[in-house]
Nucleic acid binder design. Sequence first.
DNA 1: CTCCAGGTATTTT
DNA 2: AAAATACATGGA
Length: 319
Amino acid sequence: MLTILSLTWAMQNQQLIIPVNGPFNFKECLWFLDRGYDDCLIRVYRDHFRKALIVENEEIIFDVFGDIEGLKVTIISGKLKEQTIDYIKRYLTEWFDLENDLEDYYRAISFDERLNYMSDTFYGLRLIGIPDLFEAIVWCIIGQQINLTFAYKIKRRLVEEFGKQVNCQNQTFYIFPSPQDFKTVDPQDLLRIQLSKSKANYILEVAKAFLEGRINKKVLIEQASFELQQRLLMSIKGIGLWTANYVLMKCIRINNSVPYGDAGLSNALIQHQIIANKTDLVGTKHFFRQFEGWESYLVFYLWHSLSKNVKINSVHREK
DNA sequence: CTCCAGGTATTTT
DNA sequence: AAAATACATGGA
């Protein structure tokens, strides 16, 4: 009891500091989290964001600021139990990939004149993940073959209708629904939020796979190889190669998982004069081979270049 | 109106 | 085994 009281007292008066290893630019990460899209799971402000989580069965709302040393978290509301602070620390470290040192990545892309601008322009950008496996998979299914604006609209409807609501200071925050939340949901209910028939079925299939224990984050991590991880994901209807690779990159944080065939990735590679047409899978694989161990980061930075609409360096050919 | 979106499963050659 | 096609619908 004394511990809880002293923790509460401590958190009311000071920030939780979460250190980062290597280059870090919180502003760049914050920019990614907003990107002009309407994400329903986070509120982004000028110099921080606010989010709700359920930790140890308690609704917690917190603000996250940051500087070159790492993240600074202030708890806004929610009863803090002993493990809560620890959980939030681990959650944010994973979400923002704070343990990776990006110096090696910047070295790896420094030899390519089409990419080396990134270590300045996007300096300190971390691969922002999706720690919740169910959320990562469902987000992929929603986003398959539709534009991101539309995908975020559908995600908002899904979260508002089937997720949990947390109210604080006249603001409503949402928690992404869990597999249990879809236990009694019919495909028909999902058609109302403008999911296609197949996507509605896929999402319920995924929820069922979680409820039956056929898949969860622990099981996926413990697969003996990358190929087995892909296979486990793809054994569920609605998860193809693109979704499997995206999930392994954004949730399991495999460092060399590339979502081949991704429309945005292809466009970025064309803009950077790396491939000439979208169907050039051979050229794409050949290109990524040069950046072994940092493929996922490169994918993330290429996507980032699209949303920031940067002017691509024209390759110098003089001399 | 046409084309394309951070694809996948199914059907047809 | 590889290629074509249905799926859904908003935005440019």
